[in-house]
Structure formats: C-alpha cells, structure tokens
C-alpha cells in the first residue's frame, strides 16, 4: 500500500514538527511561542459576558466588583457568584456556569464576601443562604457578614458546612453549621507559634473533599512573606485543632515573594499568586511542596480594575475587566 501526501497530512506533519521542535528546545513550559504583543490570556478564553451591559439592562449600577466565585454545591448546579459594590451596599449577581446570562440579581443586607456551595445543594453568600432554585432558604449566623476573610468548606460525612476566618490576630475561628446553616459550634484555635504578633489574614482555603489536602493561605498583617499551611487531609486539620499549627505537623511553606495586592488562590494543582516582582506582572502557579514557581502566565501592564478568581479544581479561572465591564471565563494554562 502506498501512502500519498495530502495537504492535511502536510499540515499535520508541520504541526508535529513544530511540537517536536518546541519539546526539543524545552520551550513548551515557558510558552515561548505564545508570546507576542497581545495579552497571553487570549489563548485561554473560554467564554465572555458583558456584565456591564447586562446590569445596565437590569437598571443596576455598581462601583466595582468585590469578589467572584464559582460555587459548586453538593448535588447542585455550579454557578458563578459576582459580588458587586454599589453606592447602596453590596449586590449579588448570579450567572450560569457558561456565562450566558444573569440568573438572579439580589439585594440583601446579609450579603458579604463569604461564599460557599453548601452540603445541601444550596449556596451561601455572607449569611444569606439560597436553595438550588436560588430562593432564600435561610439566614446564617450574622458573624459571617462581618468576617472579611471568611472561607469555608462542606463536610459531606457529617453533613455540615464550615466557615473559617481569623477571629483575632492569632486565632483561627472555626464555625461549624448544620446542613440547614444552624450554628452548632464556634471554637477558636490558636495559630501560635507560627503567628507574628501582628497576626494573619486568611486569603484562601482549599479543601475539595475529606481526602484531599487541607491548605490555608495566610498573609501576615506586618507585610512579611505569605505562608501556606499545608496538611495532608481534613482529618489532619481536625486533629490539629487546639494545638496550633506550629505543633500540629502542618507543613509551613513560606513563599519567597510578596503578593501584588494580596491576591492568592488555592487550587488542586497549586497556589496561584498575582506577582509583580522582577518587573513582570504575572499569575504564578506555586508548588505546595516547596513554594517554588511551577509556571506562570504573563499579564498586561496593569491589573488595575481587574478581579480574578480561580476555581478549586483548577480547571477554569475568571477575570473581570473593570475597564470594559467584560467578565471572562478562562481555561487554566497547566
């Protein structure tokens, strides 16, 4: 049998040659071929949505986007929660996962930065709890409104929702709620001896399920280097309560750089930090083992008016461009 060259075959050969060349040069990891004058993230855009225009149609004005988070409740539908800062307080826009439109726009005094897809298939934002149909189902403890740095996880085994935040300069508050958001316990745990006198700010928490690593991203209030407190699983975290992290066997991974505007996200594939050191503004993926940079994505000149969010599974991330009012859903680069 004789094989004949075809244009498609030639293109395939060219593509595989280029891939081979890239691999041979060791350039695939540094994304050498993707760099031009255009934003690198163009290659990763999955979907976009003109949030500005959509809100205008609903008659909603806003000053800024305070937070974006994709929530995936147990047995429920994944949705994108966008917290808006308006002159009249916080507003919540809820979008479908494919960014096809705003499903719900809410105004409620219970809204706050804390967000969680809960164990019962609903969603919490601040102390406001919505069911799967986005109807108000409960109002949780009001402390979730005042905790600026609260983050949470849900425990399917015990059917509880858990919220954590820095209750004091050196104390980690752990609030456990029943499946219906009834508060069941709210102890505080010392972070000593790793805490600096100025205390920490809880930037993010990662606990996808009981068996996956339990990680806290802590930013010292004195401006020193960020810290990742890494534990093997949720059981290890539970066992360490009351002992303090320094004595609990948690791996303390200090990052050797400062974050730009304190922004860091934890994903299953590593922490993603917004950096502006070495005069290069980039999103840098960090290894939980040693705190070293795994890879990065270049950003443009400025990240002003830009809001980022990374989903814990590490498949997608979101960027809101405050200048254009466009919200983007992007594939991760790893």
């Amino acid at each position: 049998m004789v094989s004949r060259a075809s244009p498609a075959g030639a293109m395939g050969l060219l593509a595989s040659s280029l891939l081979g060349l890239a691999a041979a040069l060791g350039l695939s990891s540094c994304a050498f071929f993707g760099r031009d004058m255009f934003p690198s993230e163009l290659q990763y855009r999955e979907a976009s949505f003109d949030l500005d225009a959509a809100l205008a149609k609903l008659g909603q004005t806003y000053r800024s986007v305070a937070k974006i988070e994709r929530l995936s409740p147990v047995g429920g539908e994944s949705r994108l929660f966008v917290l808006l800062q308006t002159d009249a307080g916080l507003r919540l826009a809820i979008l479908d996962d494919d960014l096809e439109g705003i499903e719900s726009l809410r105004s409620d005094s219970s809204l706050a930065r804390f967000m969680l897809g809960d164990v019962a298939g609903g969603y919490a934002c601040g102390s406001l709890v919505l069911d799967a149909a986005l109807a108000v189902s409960a109002t949780a403890d009001a402390s979730l409104q005042s905790a600026y740095d609260a983050a949470g996880y849900r425990d399917e085994a015990s059917s509880t929702n858990v919220a954590l935040w820095m209750g004091g300069t050196t104390t980690l508050s752990v609030y456990t709620f029943q499946y219906d958001w009834t508060l069941s316990s709210f102890p505080g745990y010392p972070l000593l001896p790793v805490s600096p006198a100025s205390g920490y700010y809880l930037a993010d928490l990662l606990s996808i399920d009981a068996a996956s690593p339990f990680i806290l991203a802590l930013l010292p209030n004195d401006g020193s280097r960020p810290l990742l407190a890494v534990q093997s699983d949720r059981a290890a975290f539970d066992a360490s309560r009351g002992l303090g992290y320094g004595a609990s066997g948690a791996a303390m991974v200090y990052l050797d750089f400062h974050l730009d505007d304190g922004r860091i996200w934890l994903t299953a594939d590593g922490a993603v930090a917004l950096r502006n050191d070495d005069k290069v503004r980039r999103l840098s993926r960090i290894d939980y083992g040693d705190g070293e940079e795994l890879d990065y994505l270049y950003l443009g000149d400025s990240t002003e008016e830009q809001v980022f969010s990374f989903e814990p599974e590490g498949k997608f991330w979101y960027r809101f461009d405050g200048k254009s009012g466009i919200l983007y859903k992007l594939r991760t680069w790893w």
Binding site: F33, G34, D36, Q43, W333
Partner: peptide, 16 residues
Amino acid sequence: FWCAYDFLPGSRPVFH
C-alpha cells in the same frame, strides 16, 4: 501572519 500558541494544555491558537 502569525499564531500565538503556548503549546500548553489550556491554550488554543490565536491568529493574527
């Protein structure tokens, strides 16, 4: 004419 492509899992070619 060029293509920007990182050859990374999430990237898709962008043509200019």
